[in-house]
Amino acid sequence: MPDLKNDPNKGTRAEGKTASGHLDRRAAVKALLDSQGDDVLIVAGLAGAKGDVLAAVGDDPRVFGFGGAMGAATSMGLGLALAQPDKRVLVVTGDGELLMNVGTLAAVAVANPSNLGIVCVDNEHYGETGFQRSHTGLGTNLATMAQGAGIGAVRTVTEEDELAEAGEMLRQSNGSAFVLLKVAVDEPPKIRFSWDAAFHKNRFRQALLGRP
């Protein structure tokens, strides 16, 4: 039973919710992104995962963040990785979004670009819609599914001191890589980000290609 008296989520929508993980999501994502260098290209899945990326790197042109089209972040990362084989591409997404198109892990495994890493921030809840429990809190293991899809380099991170090795794997792997971050359930403050996807697309391309 959660300790409701000392619940750090008191007053937020995550109040009273628990998950099996205990990593601080923003700190964990920041540690992984910091380990990838300044020229990594980032596709940030909608809702909580996008907030983690923005908190880590700011409103940066090398981030394309989603506001909808749930389930497309990983396939977008795949197209980007194939188009930019000399750059590292990271997809940062949540358990809910990945579950929506979990077959994309098989498409990634078969195409297997070595410059693509997928980071799943797994809080075992659908935060955006009010913190309903997701399948990953009820027995589904997305790292096992990534492995079963055929992705060769897979890590589950439950402790902070495992982040450095996971970051190293994302950087060095000779095939696509997948990291599952088992994080605590909480609702960090929202970070403002323009909803204008065409603006982000043009800004991203201008920074990367020198043209919108």
């Binding site: 396939s75 197209g79 194939l82 188009a83 990367l208 290609l209």
Partner: peptide, 11 residues
């Protein structure tokens, strides 16, 4: 759909 958008993002 996601893949083609990603391709365009990368030129």
């Amino acid at each position: 759909v996601g893949l083609l958008a990603g391709a365009h993002l990368g030129g």
